[in-house]
Write a protein that binds this DNA or RNA. Structure first.
Length: 206
DNA sequence: AAACGGATGGGCT
DNA sequence: GCCCATCCGTTTG
């Protein structure tokens, strides 16, 4: 009897329609997959940050603009924006439609398509491929994924940990979740809204 | 190991 | 004009 291992069944819509800090914690261990003409790349989410409606560091805190429009859309969609003129950051929209919250994906543990990631990033070092929000966007090839795309429909998908075929044997074991302040911000810098898998070697920094 | 500065362009006051 | 949810190479301790 064949094991039901290749189902690639994405996280269900209600997963995202919850308080953003809960989603940020629960995204740890899930798997981001992107299929392009160049092939498949996949990595396990090991570091996230929550951005909340009444949080001055959140792009949506001062109302909707053309840039942050996707943050106010349905949960479970992408919010991707240009940062520092040369990089992009990838977020998952959370909370009910219209609220304006999201989870920044800050680091992945590479699982599949590692040679493709290495080509995109211009380095062979595994720990340099996806250990930062700008890096993982390059490695996964998601800079050109449209804003607001549905993460349950692809080509960019988020899967539960157990449904990923390459998960067994490849990954670092899940450990405790560590909570710290967020990285690279000045406003609301004291809030404990960064989450990562303690001891995982692929996080952006301790 | 940590600190620093340059690259580079859109958004916002 | 200044501010960035960054990264990388170089310099300094």
């Amino acid at each position: 009897m064949t094991r039901m291992v290749g189902s690639l069944k994405p996280l269900p819509a209600p997963f995202y329609d919850r308080p953003t800090t809960e989603v940020a914690r629960d995204l740890l261990g899930t798997v981001l997959v992107h299929d392009t003409p160049d092939g498949r790349a996949a990595g396990r989410i090991v570091e996230t940050e929550a951005y909340l409606r009444d949080d001055p560091a959140c792009h949506a805190a001062r109302g909707m603009t053309s840039r942050n429009e996707a943050m106010f859309g349905p949960p479970g969609r992408s919010y991707i924006y240009l940062i520092y003129g040369m990089y992009h950051c990838f977020n998952v929209v959370t909370a009910p439609s219209g609220v304006g919250e999201a989870v920044l994906i800050r680091a992945l543990e590479p699982l599949a398509g590692i040679p493709l990631m290495a080509r995109r990033r211009g380095t062979d070092k595994p720990k340099a491929l996806c250990s930062g929000p700008g890096k993982l966007v390059i490695a996964m090839g998601i800079a050109r994924v449209p804003n607001g795309s549905d993460l349950r429909k692809g080509p960019l998908l988020i899967l539960p940990p157990e449904s990923f075929p390459w998960h067994a044997g490849g990954g670092t074991p899940l450990r405790n979740i560590k909570v710290t302040t967020r990285i690279g911000i000045t406003r609301a810098a004291h809030l404990p809204l960064r989450f990562y898998l303690e001891g995982n070697p692929y996080i952006s920094r301790k």
